[in-house]
């Protein structure tokens, strides 16, 4: 089988930017819209997803030879669900207030398509160490996306960061509304598209000139 990656750093960068789960692959949009109202929420959910992704990538990669291909999807889901239960109980014990704010989203990590997709595409075919690194990169990418959204929404909506007042005014109160998550993600995607378009244009100009 041809190697699909050059180095571990490339795997992590791949998860962070090239295949960013939120802005590029557009997977796991529910938390990105639903609870990215503050930076802290984004950070905690990011940590939880990072942990679940790394742990289940590791488990599946170790067990890949024992899993029957016909029932692989149910098996993967059960593996994810086990690790989600672990992080769910841990967070509810150590961070009760933040846990309450996130509602049932921690338990819903089970159904975030990004985790299942990475298991299916990567961890089920590659050795243990690259799978763990890939899971780490993807988790970091998710955390990066969530924190970017949380940063924008908390700063523009409430003028705060991590609950501390940063700006003297609230520039766009609309952004703290739950519905604004849709608009925020939509605008962010448009910005990403525009930056990509600018890069493309510059490259074409360089080639021509």
């Amino acid at each position: 089988m041809p190697k699909r990656y050059k180095s571990y750093s490339e795997l992590i960068l791949n998860g962070l930017f090239k295949e960013n789960p939120i802005f590029r692959l557009a997977l796991s949009m529910c938390p990105a819209v639903g609870i990215s109202t503050t930076l802290m929420n984004g950070f905690l959910l990011g940590i939880a997803v990072l942990f679940v992704q790394v742990a289940s990538s590791f488990t599946v990669s170790v067990l890949k030879n024992f899993i029957h291909p016909k029932i692989r999807i149910p098996t993967y889901t059960l593996v994810i669900a086990t690790w989600v239960t672990v992080i769910d109980l841990t967070l509810s014990a150590f961070f009760p207030t933040a846990y309450k704010a996130m509602g049932i989203f921690i338990r819903l990590i089970v159904t975030f398509s990004i985790i299942l997709m990475r298991l299916e595409v990567f961890a089920a075919r590659e050795p243990v160490l690259p799978s763990v690194v890939d899971g780490f990169g993807m988790g970091l990418g998710f955390m990066f996306g969530m924190m970017t959204l949380g940063f924008i929404r908390e700063l523009l909506g409430a003028g705060q960061l991590f609950g501390h007042q940063v700006l003297p005014v609230k520039p766009l109160l609309f952004f703290i509304l739950p519905v604004a998550g849709f608009f925020c993600v939509g605008f962010m995607m448009a910005v990403f598209n525009y930056v990509e378009y600018l890069f493309k244009k510059a490259r074409e100009k360089r080639i021509k000139g």
């Binding site: 519905v179 998550g181 849709f182 608009f183 993600v185 939509g186 995607m189 448009a190 598209n193």
Partner: peptide, 8 residues
Amino acid sequence: SIAFITAG
């Protein structure tokens, strides 16, 4: 992008 804004 426009789909998200429509959903909003």
